[in-house]
Simulated scan of single mutants.
Amino acid sequence: MKTEVNKPLSFRRYPSTTALQCFETAARHLSFTNAAQEMHMTQSAISKQVAQLEEMLNLSLFYRTPHRISLTPAGKTYYLEVLEILKHIEAATTSLMSNSDNSEVLKIVSHPTFCSRWLMPALKGFSQAQPLINLDIKELAGPFFSEDQNVDVAFLYGDGIWGGMESIKLFDEYSVAVCHPDYLKDKAPCTSNIDNCTLLQLSSRPSAWYEYFRQQDISIDGTFVGPRFDTFHTTISAALLGYGIALVPLRLVAPELRSGALVTAWRYAVKGRGAYYISYPLSLGRSHKIKVLLEWVSAYLDTSNDHEQGLDFYQQS
């Protein structure tokens, strides 16, 4: 007897998009009436779609009482899954509709603080100059490249060596100690005595302050003590609010230093162990959109240098 192993998709049972939308809306509102108003359908139509979905799944998604509905445990689990599916459909549809037939999308990822404080100024005017390249920029704090991520370019900090990637160095990192101007009032901070200072810490760089003093041949206790934050952005915000002294890359706080919103506590810039790179998969090395972006970033770097950022003011190792 012939057995059909793989059935075509048309023979499999899938809920309709309408049924999923009705369920998601009802689950979000916990009301068939409110769901009907949002979906521009009748209450009975919403209820029927959900009932048919439950019948297909052979599961109850809602507890029903005369005055209210609530999600069952299975309904709660299914709601979260359906929500992600609908978001993905919406994003895919919007992306397709927003791009013309002869345009392409350039998917970029960057650390949030670097993205807002360096990358955004660097890419100003790019979309106008390259209307056929649509930027899709994501901010990520974790690993930027993995098998399940679709990324064209990443702006990374490190040693420039990432598997399967071509990396081009942008610039070294020099960090300075900054604080609110009022924070130094009634204090006489010096690098040999920080007892009256609060050192703001970055979680991903627990040894940053130790390295700052070590490069100056200063041995000091308490470099690991102080409020700890996840990102440079939050650390900078804390310094602006007078929490203490933050050790952050000079390029990321150049605007605040120029305006006087922040001042340097000590006249020294510590060189980081890594540098900033623009990286892309080796398979995209001949891509037109990568070539255009590299040329744009290179031109931007030519118009902004370390002396304009005030690096020459600081003592360096």
Rank of each mutant, 00 (worst) to 15 (best):
D302Q: 13
V105G: 10
R68H: 08
V248D: 00
F213G: 08
S95D: 09
W296R: 07
R13Y: 02
V176H: 00
D148V: 10
L294G: 06
I245W: 02
Y183S: 04
T113F: 04
T231Q: 12
F126D: 13
R258T: 00
E166K: 15
F23Q: 13
Y79K: 15
M120S: 11
E147D: 14
L156Y: 02
N196E: 13
Y314G: 03
E55G: 11
T198H: 08
I85W: 04
K124Q: 15
V109H: 05
R12C: 11
D195W: 03
T191Q: 15
R28Q: 13
G310D: 00
L240F: 06
Q215K: 13
E256Y: 05
F144I: 08
L9R: 01
I236T: 00
S100A: 12
A35E: 06
S283L: 10
K76M: 11
C22S: 15
A177K: 01
P181V: 00
G272R: 02
N102Y: 06
V178A: 02
I194C: 01
I245F: 01
M1K: 08
Y243N: 10
L247G: 03
C115G: 12
R286S: 15
I278N: 02
R13H: 10
L301K: 04
Y268G: 14
A122Q: 09
A35T: 09
I133W: 10
E173W: 01
S203Q: 12
P189H: 06
A246S: 02
L247S: 03
Q316T: 15
K185A: 12
L250E: 01
I46L: 07
K124G: 04
Y210H: 15
I236G: 00
G274F: 06
I46Y: 04
H29P: 05
L311P: 04
A239S: 03
G125E: 12
L53K: 03
A246W: 02
F313Q: 13
G163A: 14
C115H: 08
S207Y: 14
W209C: 04
H307S: 07
A26V: 06
H88L: 09
S95Y: 01
P206V: 10
A208S: 04
K48V: 10
E54F: 01
R68V: 03
G285K: 11
Y78D: 04
G244V: 01
W118E: 03
Y276H: 12
P73S: 05
T17S: 07
T77D: 14
Y174C: 07
A92F: 00
N193W: 11
K76N: 12
L140M: 14
V153Q: 09
H180L: 12
C22D: 15
Y63C: 08
S127D: 15
S146A: 13
Y78P: 02
L257S: 00
T25L: 11
G272M: 05
W209S: 08
